[in-house]
Design a protein around this nucleic acid. Sequence first.
DNA 1: AAAATTTGCGTAATCACTTACGTAATTGAT
DNA 2: ATCAATTACGTAAGTGATTACGCAAATTTT
Lengths: 159, 159
Amino acid sequence: MDLISELGPLAFGSRLKRLSETIMRGGEDVYRFYGVDFQPKWFPIFYFLSQKSEAGIMEIAEGLNVTHPAVIQMSKELEKKGLIVSKKSDEDARKRNLKLSKKGEDLLPTLQKIWEEIKLMNAEIIENQEHNLLIAVKEIEDAWAAKSYLERFKEFHGL
Amino acid sequence: MDLISELGPLAFGSRLKRLSETIMRGGEDVYRFYGVDFQPKWFPIFYFLSQKSEAGIMEIAEGLNVTHPAVIQMSKELEKKGLIVSKKSDEDARKRNLKLSKKGEDLLPTLQKIWEEIKLMNAEIIENQEHNLLIAVKEIEDAWAAKSYLERFKEFHGL
DNA sequence: AAAATTTGCGTAATCACTTACGTAATTGAT
DNA sequence: ATCAATTACGTAAGTGATTACGCAAATTTT
């Protein structure tokens, strides 16, 4: 009995979460293989800062499409690891800007090499997909944004 | 800058989680619309029990492909709601079997009607997908099961 | 220029899982 | 028949996100 195919994405959450965690763990192995002390979960913020050089919490949150508390939590870890630093903005007293530390900058080239390779691996996996996960998710998101269950229901029943 | 398309599923977790939560909320609306006191997160266990009539914790966990503590936690809620009951197995003193309560059985036909409609809606969404999410996820899972990043790496570098 | 609104950040609590660990019952090996 | 291994379940703590709330600074309205 396959619940998923019977009832679609309703029971889908944990499965997707697990998949992403499996892949994360795979990422860890790669960093370890290269002897680099870096965790996949740090990637989004770290990468964002490597592109932007300096950014406030909200800017990062929006860029990564996560909530700002999520950014604060992750950035705390990165700061503890000494990979990023933060300082109050001069122009806006509400803002706290994050940027890569010296240590972070030094690590960057190595990380970039690794990311490049991971990107290749991803491309290989994705290109071999008959149904592209990225596109599929986007399609579902869009379908949902356009019309919720309830709206579909009401339509269906002429309400 | 799109992190996802650049680096694939590595930064994918929260996006998928959010999608599944959005859909869950959509499910809530439907139950509410029908005036039924039922939550989407209860569905997997409840549905499983409606098919199996009686099952131990581990059996459910394996059937749903989640860990047994997850089953225990969710089933506690269902038990509190009076929708399922549990009792020690006669044959095996370690086992605690779960099954639908009278109240649960009574609710079942109504739920089944709702599920049937949800299934239709899902089918509509999924059939309109160019890239099928379910298949896409399965493909990625399989690709991963077959070969991890690290194995791909080593292969790539002839190690 | 005062008042109202918006923005940026921080903290706390929650969520639905997980891993890690422990215990008791059963099964299997010798 | 005993001892070791496995199985079933339970609890505790951790995870990486979320929502809800609050506050102070900046911006906009009037």
